[in-house]
Amino acid sequence: MSNRVPTTDVLLRATLDYLDQELLPTLEGYHRFQTRVCINVLRTVQREFALSDAADAAEHARLADLLGHPGEGVDPNPALNAELAEAIASGRLALDAPGLVEHLRRTLADSLAIDNPRWIAGEAN
């Protein structure tokens, strides 16, 4: 992480505050809708910055445990996920394998915490 001042989080928060609290109330129709979309995108980016490194590391640890190896490369998770899917589809890994359901639940929860945390809180229908 760099020593930039202000930080990315501070910049995002300031932008979101301006868009949501100052600009949005002055708009209507198409531009209000598009600004709301931009606010939602920026909130997702903000959560991605805050949560993705820890979620990716935890997912990697679970995948390595399930598959018995850590994978290769800078970002091994996509390949490990493909391997896990193939192992399940071929029957090499049983659906009741220890840790599998918990891994899938945790990975989904971590992803939703970034993409739409209201789903985790039970607010989305």
Rank of each mutant, 00 (worst) to 15 (best):
50 A>N: 10
73 G>E: 05
96 D>N: 11
65 D>V: 05
79 A>I: 03
85 A>C: 06
47 R>T: 07
33 F>V: 13
84 L>G: 00
71 G>N: 04
52 S>V: 13
71 G>I: 01
79 A>R: 11
83 E>N: 03
93 L>Q: 01
26 T>N: 09
42 L>C: 07
58 A>W: 01
94 A>V: 03
101 V>L: 12
27 L>M: 04
41 V>T: 13
99 G>A: 01
51 L>Q: 12
47 R>E: 02
76 P>H: 02
100 L>M: 02
101 V>W: 07
88 I>W: 01
56 D>M: 14
33 F>R: 14
78 P>W: 02
43 R>S: 09
101 V>T: 13
39 I>G: 06
31 H>I: 08
79 A>D: 12
70 P>G: 05
87 A>R: 14
79 A>W: 03
89 A>W: 04
83 E>P: 02
101 V>N: 08
43 R>H: 10
55 A>T: 03
55 A>R: 05
87 A>S: 09
43 R>G: 10
30 Y>T: 12
85 A>M: 07
70 P>L: 04
29 G>K: 07
89 A>L: 07
50 A>E: 14
66 L>G: 00
68 G>C: 01
79 A>C: 06
44 T>D: 09
52 S>R: 15
87 A>K: 11
44 T>N: 12
32 R>S: 10
60 H>C: 01
24 L>G: 05
99 G>E: 01
96 D>C: 04
67 L>E: 00
93 L>R: 02
62 R>D: 11
35 T>V: 10
96 D>V: 03
98 P>M: 05
38 C>W: 14
67 L>Q: 00
26 T>A: 12
46 Q>C: 08
51 L>Y: 12
41 V>Y: 12
67 L>I: 00
78 P>Y: 03
26 T>H: 12
88 I>L: 06
24 L>D: 06
39 I>R: 09
70 P>D: 04
36 R>G: 14
86 E>C: 08
76 P>Q: 04
88 I>D: 02
47 R>H: 04
97 A>G: 01
66 L>P: 00
32 R>Q: 10
31 H>V: 09
41 V>E: 13
62 R>H: 11
79 A>N: 08
43 R>N: 13
30 Y>V: 09
